[in-house]
Design a protein around this nucleic acid. Sequence first.
DNA 1: GCCGATTTGTCCGTATGTATC
DNA 2: CGATACATACGGACAAATCGG
Lengths: 241, 241
Amino acid sequence: MPKAKYDSIYKGLKSRIETGEFDFQELLPSENHLIQDYNCSRNTVRRAVAALVADGYVQTQQGKGVRNIFQPAIQTSFTIGGIESFRESALRNHQIPRTRVLLFAEITADQKIAKRTGFSSGSRLYYIQRLHYLDEKPLIINHNYFLKDVVTSLTREIAEESIYAYLENELHISIVTSKRIMTVEKMTQIDEKYLELGDYNCLAVVSSQTYNGDGVMFEYTQSRHRPDYFCFQDNATRNPR
Amino acid sequence: MPKAKYDSIYKGLKSRIETGEFDFQELLPSENHLIQDYNCSRNTVRRAVAALVADGYVQTQQGKGVRNIFQPAIQTSFTIGGIESFRESALRNHQIPRTRVLLFAEITADQKIAKRTGFSSGSRLYYIQRLHYLDEKPLIINHNYFLKDVVTSLTREIAEESIYAYLENELHISIVTSKRIMTVEKMTQIDEKYLELGDYNCLAVVSSQTYNGDGVMFEYTQSRHRPDYFCFQDNATRNPR
DNA sequence: GCCGATTTGTCCGTATGTATC
DNA sequence: CGATACATACGGACAAATCGG
């Protein structure tokens, strides 16, 4: 729920941009106008606009205004910066998600796992392998590691649905920050068996460490994506923040 | 130059974190302390801290404080969100960059190029192919397209050094926003010829559209990276901004 | 369980600087 | 030069979460 004022202004402007109210390169109403439109202070509109800049929707220029640089064609792809579950992004793109659990195990982190995941050696973990289909095409194999201290009583049934929905709605774990690293790796036997890789001999791999509100890293996930359906978006800005 | 106060506070805190002044998971000084330390208003320290959150250096928690979650091991890799030239990131990682210009041409965008790059059909462009070495290993092939209307008088000599330095220092083009899309693609004959791909038959590809301060897209670049040296970092945050 | 102190989150109003036209 | 627009900075007020007594 957008109870915060700047967030509802942000969402409002975003939707106005997405529906084409402003032409590409057109200037948005000035801050002073927005202050009146939304009946708020200048700081609040500026915060909303700053969020749109971070999304790559608009660009500000001192002395001129705020320019719309949103292009619908590009914006539709698989994932934008932000933490989104597989189900969420599937539904956002009007595709049908299906998940198959390949492995559901409880393990203790040894040295090797600790080094790879960032958990301490000796941590009790759930280790889950899942195959994700989109419109019945196998696209992603996820290797999830969850810290049992935080994520209690996970089951195979939950893993077949959305684990993130369980974490947030049932366990009330607030997900705050996720550090992601993207690489390209050679395929493994598991990749080859389940994903229809064709001629490709490598995959796009996204490794992420996720922290809860208490600053505890409770999840390490390696997502192995079939290359022909993988697309990752990002908006970068030059030095000054 | 950090003439802005919040930026110097941001840089100061960032360096204090990087040098290990705070333990992992330790709380930073509270906003009130920072206000006194840096002799500024609350908004200003909050802005600096917000930038650190965006960098994945710290995490804030209402009622508790600001927690250091910086881990030096991870932070050293190739590129973090932000626009950085090849030279800049090479030097940041203490590696020796070298650039070889494979092709330097002036072209007019046809339908096909227009569709791929986002320039209008008929635009006059520079088209440059460059091979980038790091410590004498060939790692990246860049295909740059620059709009001649904006980027005037580019030469092969400039392309052998840093084009970005030329744009900023000579032409005074301010680089503001860059939309990037990452994919994995099969290798081409050019890739195979110049990059030492070994067993790999694909590459990590970063396509980017870069805008100047006037909102004009003046650059389209496709960077084709050798997979074994490619690594891309990102920090994501859950919904609220 | 309550209360008060501390800390971050949200919002407002104002002043001044700087870039554009 | 003046008007407009965004950028930076300050100060204050109240809300919400956390923690210790």
